[in-house]
Simulated scan of single mutants.
Amino acid sequence: MIVRTLLAALALSLSGAMASAQSIDLSPEQPGRPRAERNEAAIRLLSPNAKLAKEGVFTVAIAAGRLPFSAYATDTKTVIGSDPDIARLVADSLGLTLDIIPVAWADWPLGLASGKYDAVISNVTVTEQRKEKFDFSTYRKDELGFYAKADSTLSIKEPKDVAGLRVIVGASTNQEQILLRWNQQNVAQGLKPVDIQYYDDDVVRGLAIQSGRADAYLGPNALSAFEAAKDGKTKLVGTFSGGWPLVAEIAVTTRKGAGLAEAITQAINTQIQNGNYAKVLARWNLVPEAIERSQTNPPGLPKT
């Protein structure tokens, strides 16, 4: 039933995904943001010992960076995007007022561990190392994507498909490490090496693709998909898990043993069943990264 409901909701929402990215609502009011009803089943799963940073408030840290995940609205202070929308659904479900705290990405672990906020919803991947200090409630797939010029005939489905290509990737990123492993594997098999390119500026990166100086860009699928839907200059030519060859998922992150994770997982699963979850993903062109069911503390990426 859960799978059928999700797929039906995604099918209805998919047609609106492109339009959503074409005409982005950057207002602080966000009138199209789905809201949830109070979820008694989720509330009952809150631990009696659970202590919130503020009474009656769900305080969530988000690193406002780029849409579709999160960015500032036109008032330059309200954080909008898919992660704030998920935070809103969880807060509504738990009968709490939502308070979003903008943070730098590097600061969230200490702030969460110290109880400064109740959760982090900011594209955090589940890893075994993080599970030692935090609990997780999954809400989206962690996927990487290869993007090429809109008229490209490239199709990248496995490591050998990148042999001899000129590929842009971010330095010191997970996707760079995966690309380097693919390249090493290909060279060992006698295939042509990848010409790996690095650009710090997104505009320069885009010009490299459009001018033909590079064949493809490898990065977080959600960011590139949103950009492609918005301007139509690039397209997806290959996608795979951010934990390749393992599956990785993004999750709401809470303090270890805080007594919040099971309630949050239940809240998310209810929103998957009633279609609100699909509406959030459709608003931000994230439909392909939908999960069928939220899990509490699933297997994470292994320690390196």
Rank of each mutant, 00 (worst) to 15 (best):
V57R: 03
V57G: 01
F58P: 05
T59I: 00
A61H: 00
A64I: 07
R66H: 15
R66I: 09
L67P: 01
L67Q: 08
L67S: 02
P68H: 06
P68I: 01
F69Y: 15
S70P: 10
S70H: 08
A71R: 11
Y72H: 12
Y72F: 15
A73M: 05
D75G: 13
T76E: 15
K77R: 15
T78I: 10
V79G: 04
V79Q: 05
G81N: 08
G81D: 06
G81W: 09
G81H: 10
S82C: 08
S82N: 03
P84T: 03
D85N: 15
A87L: 05
R88A: 15
R88H: 13
R88I: 04
V90G: 08
V90Y: 04
V90M: 04
A91E: 02
A91W: 02
G95Y: 07
G95F: 06
L96S: 11
L98G: 04
D99M: 01
I100A: 04
I100K: 09
I101L: 15
P102T: 11
P102H: 12
P102Y: 12
A104W: 01
W105K: 00
A106R: 13
A106W: 01
D107V: 07
L110S: 13
G111R: 12
G111V: 00
G111P: 01
G111A: 02
L112I: 10
L112S: 11
G115P: 08
G115L: 04
K116G: 11
K116Q: 14
K116W: 06
K116F: 12
K116E: 14
Y117M: 12
Y117T: 04
Y117I: 02
Y117G: 03
D118Y: 10
A119K: 07
A119E: 03
A119Q: 05
I121W: 07
S122M: 05
S122N: 10
S122H: 03
N123Q: 14
N123T: 12
N123I: 00
N123G: 08
V124W: 00
T125F: 08
T125L: 09
V126T: 15
V126N: 08
V126R: 09
V126K: 06
T127F: 03
Q129M: 13
Q129P: 00
Q129K: 15
R130I: 02
R130D: 13
K131L: 15
K133C: 00
F134H: 09
F134R: 10
F134I: 10
F134Q: 05
D135R: 06
F136H: 14
S137K: 07
S137D: 06
Y139D: 05
Y139C: 05
R140W: 00
D142F: 15
D142G: 13
E143V: 14
G145V: 12
G145A: 14
F146M: 06
Y147L: 11
Y147V: 04
Y147P: 03
A148F: 09
K149S: 12
A150C: 01
S152E: 12
